[in-house]
């Protein structure tokens, strides 16, 4: 769907993007991650044709990015904004028409979305009369009203209360199910884990990591398990199955984190442990995206 090849964006005294390449598959939810100032917004602005790259090329459905693509993209910028003194309904029609809808279609789709989001009574209101959360909702609708193939959301959940965040999340998932490709840009990793199929990590203008979320997580698995048990303190000396990373007591149970040695299965470890203790729970310790992110970014800082 979207292919980004060797993009370079140079500003007067810093390089915002340094040879970044990415590929986003059709119909997936893609997370564009990175700390503030990494270059995410610069990249998004280039995809939206707000600015142009100094080098490199972008393809949408195999076609080089050109003005005809503008109407197929919906963009929710990080810095939200609407005309404060304009009526919500008028504003929605205006923004929809700027995305290429006819006035009639714009009206039809506005009615559909206003009903869906329970905003019918807002039509004649002005933006300054709405709460911040309501404004965000209006802006979200304005982003997707023209049925874009590609939806780019920059920090979509900032500013939403938990209830509305849930509403928006469900709308995003539904749009995705209907075939829209979605790109999230965020520095808040926890929202990404639940939603994204693939991610790319950007730090200091460069892509650090990208791929399917599952593959990335798999590659960071280290055969580490956390076991919760009841019983006497374990005597683990003399075994060749794992090394103990951490050991501690909880209120009623105790906990031990182990890393299996080469070639050892988790069952082997359990068989060894079961005679000694009452096993309550076993979980694999998989690094969160946050851990991976911090590890990567720190690694770059120290390198």
């Amino acid at each position: 769907m979207l292919k980004i090849e060797n993009i370079v964006k140079q500003y007067a005294n810093h390089r915002a993007l340094d040879n970044v390449s990415l590929e986003v598959e059709k119909g997936c939810i893609f997370g564009l991650l990175g700390p503030n100032g990494a270059g995410k917004t610069s990249l998004i602005r280039i995809i939206n044709q707000i600015t142009a790259p100094d080098e490199g090329a972008i393809y949408i459905n195999g076609e080089r990015l050109n003005p005809s693509h503008i109407n197929t993209i919906g963009y929710l910028p990080e810095e939200r904004g609407l005309y404060k003194k304009m009526e919500i309904g008028e504003q929605m029609l205006y923004l929809a028409q700027l995305k290429g809808l006819s006035r009639k279609d714009a009206l039809e789709r506005s009615n559909y979305w206003f009903e869906k989001m329970e905003m019918q009574t807002w039509w004649k209101k002005k933006v300054e009369d709405l709460s911040k959360g309501m404004q965000q909702k209006v802006q979200f609708v304005a982003t997707v009203i023209h049925n874009p193939e590609l939806i780019i959301l920059d920090e979509p959940f900032s500013g939403f209360d938990p209830i509305n965040a849930e509403v928006i999340k469900n709308e995003i998932l539904e749009l995705n199910k209907q075939g829209a490709t979605i790109i999230f840009s965020t520095h808040r990793m926890e929202s990404v884990e639940q939603l994204c199929d693939s991610i790319a990590l950007i730090n200091k203008s460069r892509k650090v990591l990208d791929g399917r979320l599952k593959d990335i997580k798999n590659s960071y698995r280290s055969n580490t398990y956390c076991i919760e048990y009841k019983g006497e303190e374990l005597n683990l000396s003399g075994q060749q199955l794992f090394e103990v990373i951490r050991q501690g007591d909880l209120e009623e149970t105790s906990q031990i984190t182990i890393k299996l040695k080469e070639g050892i299965k988790v069952n082997d470890a359990l068989q060894y442990l079961i005679p000694m203790a009452q096993i309550e729970q076993l979980t694999e310790v998989v690094p969160t995206i946050n851990d991976i992110f911090i590890q990567q970014v720190r690694g770059m800082d120290y390198a």
Partner: peptide, 13 residues
């Protein structure tokens, strides 16, 4: 348009 930040929405169109 600049302070209300709507400008970024408009110039993406």
């Amino acid at each position: 348009e600049k302070t209300s930040r709507i400008v970024e929405v408009i110039i993406s169109s």
